[in-house]
Amino acid sequence: MPSFFSNKKLIVLLTSLIVLIALISYSLKEGTRATWTEQFVQDVVGGFQYVVNVPARYVAGFFENVSDIENAYKENKRLKENLTNYASVEQENRDLTSQNKELKAQLGMKNDPSLSEYTKYSATLISRSYDQWNQLLTLDKGKVNGIKNGMPVITSGKRLVGSVTKVGNFTSKVSLISDDQNVNQISAMIEPKNGDTIYGMIEGYNQNKGTLLFGKIPIKAKVKKGQTVTTSGLSGKYSKGLVIGTVQSVSTDQYGLTKAAQIKPAADLNHLNYVLVIEKKKQVGGKGN
């Protein structure tokens, strides 16, 4: 009868445990910097993934179109209802934009790019990590295309998806906002219709409910269901005005000192095809933020 662990095997097991712990602590310490081996492997595998992914996406897209056609009628009806408001909102928007421009010109801020201005790089998703614990995407653009570490990633409608964590030469990895290692860095805010702006932090992701935790809200702030949460631009990493999600429920945190809200992400994180990587325009100097 063979035994599971003889003496020699025990030594091998212990050695590999030590190696494992060393590797884990190394990669936790290293954080977002990718070594050249990692970059090389990521790029080479990325090439193959691209080849497999294109036909797969094509087929998936076909089935998606079929189900889209089914929904088109319902959607059309709803959109027509929304359209009645559109003209007035557009007019309002135009007025406000011109007003904003004038005021900025008066303040002498015309050539000073604001926090919300950025350049976009469009990218296609080529793979994502298959275990749901790591929420990582691989994009088909890398250093060569101008992608850098820490850039925010959005989908259409300025909806925040995540940020770039590891860049290879031709591919880059994106950590989604639903990834537990990434989320504690987003400074967020709510701009209510009347009253002051409410600031807070996105602190974690709840996998059971599929919601983000918006914490550190002042206890007196009036947070209501349905309000939109955006990035505040205070942390410097994410530019201002990227939509994170809408408030689903509000509660007091465990110590009773601040409020916390559950937020439903605006972007459908399970269903991404094309994303935009954005880079804040450099400040022209002078005014620092």
Partner: peptide
Amino acid sequence: IVYASVLGV
């Protein structure tokens, strides 16, 4: 390397 963030696991 490709699908996870921590090496070795």
